[in-house]
Design a protein around this nucleic acid. Sequence first.
DNA 1: TCGACACTATCGATCGATCGATCGAACGTC
DNA 2: GACGTTCGATCGATCGATCGATAGTGTCGA
Lengths: 215, 215
Amino acid sequence: MSSAERVRAAAVKLFATKGFHGTGIRDLAQEAELSSATLYHYMGTKEDLLVEIMTTSLRRLIDAVAKATAGSDDPVVRMRTLVALHVLAHAAQPGETRVVDNEVDALSAPARARVVALRDEYEQYWADAIEDGAAANVFHTAQPAVTRLALLEMCSGVARWYSPKGPLKLEDLATHYAELALRVLGHPVAVRARDLRQCLEVVAQVWDLPVQEGF
Amino acid sequence: MSSAERVRAAAVKLFATKGFHGTGIRDLAQEAELSSATLYHYMGTKEDLLVEIMTTSLRRLIDAVAKATAGSDDPVVRMRTLVALHVLAHAAQPGETRVVDNEVDALSAPARARVVALRDEYEQYWADAIEDGAAANVFHTAQPAVTRLALLEMCSGVARWYSPKGPLKLEDLATHYAELALRVLGHPVAVRARDLRQCLEVVAQVWDLPVQEGF
DNA sequence: TCGACACTATCGATCGATCGATCGAACGTC
DNA sequence: GACGTTCGATCGATCGATCGATAGTGTCGA
């Protein structure tokens, strides 16, 4: 792993576990096995590093859902795909996703605006799928906007507790959450294994992970 | 409001919005309208202040669920009560709950152990209700533990976005979430208004809030 | 009624430590 | 000798925390 990669990995790990403000430049340097001065050869300010992690992580997620939902009009299929992708991404990359979800408040106003715009772009996929499903009468929810937020929070929570060392396989996790999401949306239909396998492949591809189960 | 109360309120506000590490002693002093030296007349260390906020907040929540679920054996009723209480607490006291949910990592090891023990005590109510419901065949979930975590994350998320200024009333919010939770648990039954009103009263009582709607 | 004393509340000044960030110099490699 | 990397030393700023001093307030014996 190159020094540049070590710096980024160190930042993801420490920002995710100790928070942006709780992580010092010297913590970063120690984790990356470099002097604090050398860090600045690979980054701008500490905030630049945070912004880079957030934007690339969100861009990857947006690319993944764009790729995985392309060509599908069925809201149920899209919803299953969105949930599976979101859960897989949060389980496989808990560091990045925890930083994105928890450290938005640490950004300065202009940087925060750019990150929030990306997040809104992502959540629009969820809003569209829910709206289309409600219009097609396959989803039944009295408060679509609230339900969307509830689903997103439920799925993002995975990054806070999932461990690949536990008994639960990634596929089982994603399948279970897709099932829960459809229940929330008032559409009690079993999850098809075929849809899920496609999501696993997209995640492995976009995040550049080995393809076998468990990443 | 006394100085002691202003210190605590300032800490809740700033810890919730800027994070524990992102909040300086001087920020706290300015928000509480005191000098930084005077702060230490009302608190121990900054971490003591954080621990006090977390433990009292969790104790109140535990007291509330103990009071509200006492005497009820029906897992469905208990689950509705747990969800409504949790959502109402997170919507009515977003500061405290955000601090509890997000700043656990900022604690030193011994303090964290005490807080996590309280959190586990609280979550046991959820685990019991889900287990009893599954045993009574009124809940249907393949992964009870995962479902519990998913539900908790879903409900806690309310503190991140709910605003009393929005169009959504507290009762509608709690009712909607109770409905979503029962769907997640495979028990599609409408929420009874009577159960909810009792939860509103318990929250108002335990958190010492005015009883009329909206707190 | 009055002063003496104790106690609470407050703050300006300041402590040593750590913060994010920068500098010039020294490496190696081509 | 040009360039990409690395680091020790150090900058001014800010951090959490403490100090002694100064008011205010209530109590109690004379």
